[in-house]
Amino acid sequence: MRWENFRFALFEKAPEALLEHSMIVVITITLAILISVPLGVFLSRPKYKKFGLVTLNILNLLQAVPGIAVIALALPILGLGMKPAIVALLFQSLLPIVRNTIAGLLGVSSDVKEAASGMGMSQRRILWEVELPLAIPIILSGIRTATVYVVSIGTLASLIGAGGLGNLIMGGLSLFRPEYLLVGAGLGALMAIFLDRMINYLEYRITPPGMRVE
């Protein structure tokens, strides 16, 4: 191990890689939330419940496919670069959010909903003002799972040219420079743990005090 290599990896290479990685994560998670939360709301409506099971089963199957296989399958279909990587990651980050949205919305007790409709709220207002606020902690926990997952598989996205921290790790493995490995892997781990803690804290803050479970 040499300090010079370490410094080079940390100050010359890491900032760009970290930026690319953050971009992949932020774009993927934003898209995933935009797709899955409405999908979850839609599937939890009583009218469309029968689609719910089918969709969940399909997403479950997709989830079982290992990340590296998804990345490898994305290359011949979508090509090289950041966009294909994001699409590949998107596929797998949908399930936790959709599942938790459905679980959260179905978990709202029917007494509360009845009380709301008894007060003369319309279905739409019940959804926005009663169901979603009560379900948000569970939805956030799904978003947390998805985020950690995207950070993790995001390191593999460098294989299809998306850049990110995986570049440092792969470079370190092929040149056999432990400094690169430590910087790339360490930053990846820190990023995942940091995001997990942050969303966890958000979850805790957003839960109404009466609903907190010890």
Binding site: G67, V151, S152, I169, L182, G188, A189, A192
Partner: peptide
Amino acid sequence: TIFCIPSLSMFAILVT
């Protein structure tokens, strides 16, 4: 916390 660590990172750290 361990579960959060990206798998490629975990392998890379152990290798060093």
